[in-house]
Design a protein around this nucleic acid. Sequence first.
DNA 1: ATTTAGACCTGTCAGC
DNA 2: TGCTGACAGGTCTAAA
Length: 311
Amino acid sequence: MPELPEVEYTARQLRASIAGATIQYAQVFWEQTVSHPDYHDFLAQVVNRRVEGIRRRGKYLLVNLSGDLLLTIHRRMSGNFLLLSPGWQLDTTRRENDPVAWKIKGPEFSHPDYMAPSGPASHRNLQYCRVSFVFADGRCLLYTDPRKFGRIELWPMVCEPEALHGLGPEPLADEFSVQILADALAVRKRGIKQTLLDQGVVAGIGNIYADEALFYAGIHPRRQANTLTSHEVRALHKGIVSTLTLGIEHGGTSFNDYSDLWGAAGENYNHVSVYQREGQPCVRCGTTIERMVIVQRSSHYCPACQKLTVE
DNA sequence: ATTTAGACCTGTCAGC
DNA sequence: TGCTGACAGGTCTAAA
């Protein structure tokens, strides 16, 4: 579920909270979540490491650990982080009818930043802890993931993890120019929607922000990527940068699962123009927003603002 | 060479 | 109330 803005927002929150903290130990409750190395090795290697820094690349969260280790995290559809105040702990008793759900036990929320898990999703998320990191100061970082798609890996810093190798430019960095985007689109015959979802073209765009960026630029999701005019490419570039930037400023987009480190929902769902707004009026012209399926994914667009035919 | 189902997973919601 | 199918912020693989 998290796209670039959600991952970036999490990275900023983690930087402000756990940078410099030492991992006392970790627990793994769903083995497949830790895909490299073997989770036994993972648990052994992570002990007593200090969190040296936190970065983001595309939708990957990158955590530098002391001893030249790199933790890479991809949350896929429903992965989330929650930071528990000291005093909280995992109750690892298996629940009767659900062998993979885990409960959290502890005192009432007392941390000033942690008054209540305010997002509607946070209570639910607490039950699906797959990995936990317990810090020396007693705090506990939970990786929760109802759908179990997310992956956490540990690599020696010297070799860049393969997963990061094929990623395209960072859309919010200087390297992402109009020309870079134009060059990438010029050689792709696929639809523009699929092309934007391709992490090798631009890193970090997912279904929400692809739809939003296309609406911003007035481009139909089925337009062939290499037929965009230079004017349209310029508009799309601006659309990508501004919708992602806005997403970060609003703390990400929450529809179901996503919440921030303290369990609060991201504000950006109040600011989307087309995503999941099928049947509602276009914010620009009032025409009814439509939905179509493209490569097994929903696409939301305004049929009046985003015409398929080239003028 | 691309496109596209299917897999991986669990939960929710609408409709019968 | 209970069942069924569609759908959900992603990405990889194999078959068409």
